[in-house]
């Protein structure tokens, strides 16, 4: 899923400074699962912003609404009646796709992102998420024991581990595991070194973001 993190409260306060009527929109997709922008996080952020306004005697109304998904026009449409109430600002608590879809559907509204979209990853434990994919557009993890060197090696190297690998951790931080240590160890432990040895070709990045913004059209699905 897409892992997000709420922006610092000061930045969010700066978005709504001087505004009186704000709509806070959550998303029941990835950001609900990663505890960043679901119904509950919307409720908490709304309460914090209200408290802040109340404390200073500022007039502020915050309405809360959580959509099934903000990355799908049919759900974004559901917001039409609410948007008609004329808000001074709409804060989207989805990944950055959300505020972009809201802006496009409701072009007159001032839409702000409330989350920072961090990476594609998974939960290692409750409250701990780690990056596992960089959307390079051409998955090759089967060549690396099911592990992704593109996203999980600090230098995305194809023939690791580099000389910075020490005690299973990366040279950039003891908090970053050396994925190449895990890959190489796996093949050695399984006695499959010969299979692992071939030189990896220089990667073709044209299917990744480097090839420009990407789009998929599935003709059989298009109406």
């Amino acid at each position: 899923m897409i892992i997000c993190e709420r922006k610092p409260i000061d930045e969010l306060k700066s978005f709504i400074a001087g505004k009186k009527k704000v709509l806070l929109v959550g998303c029941r997709g990835c950001v609900t699962v990663c505890n960043a922008g679901g119904t509950k996080e919307v409720e908490i952020l709304a309460a914090l912003l209200r408290l802040d306004a109340q404390k200073d005697g500022n007039e502020l109304t915050i309405d809360e609404f959580t959509l099934e998904r903000q990355c799908d026009p049919e759900y974004v449409d559901e917001l039409a009646d609410l948007v008609a109430k004329q808000y001074d600002a709409i804060l989207s608590m989805a990944c950055s796709v959300g505020p972009q879809f809201l802006s496009r559907r409701y072009p007159k509204e001032k839409v702000y992102p409330s989350l920072n979209t961090c990476f594609i990853g998974g939960a290692l434990a409750h409250g701990v998420w780690a990056e596992h994919c960089q959307a390079c557009g051409n998955c090759i993890i089967h060549n690396f024991g099911g592990m992704c060197p593109v996203s999980r090696c600090s230098k995305s190297i194809m023939n690791g581990p580099c000389g910075g690998s020490s005690n299973g951790v990366c040279e950039i931080s003891k908090e970053v595991e050396c994925i190449w240590h895990l890959i190489a160890s796996k093949y050695m432990d399984e006695g499959r070194l010969a299979e692992f040895a071939p030189l990896q070709p220089i990667k073709d990045w044209s299917k990744s973001r480097d090839g420009g913004p990407r789009k998929i059209v599935r003709e059989e699905l298009v109406k």
């Binding site: 610092p8 409260i9 306060k13 912003l49 408290l51 404390k55």
Partner: peptide, 8 residues
């Protein structure tokens, strides 16, 4: 921590 950030 959050309260501190909103000045409470």
């Amino acid at each position: 921590n959050e309260l501190k950030k909103i000045g409470l």
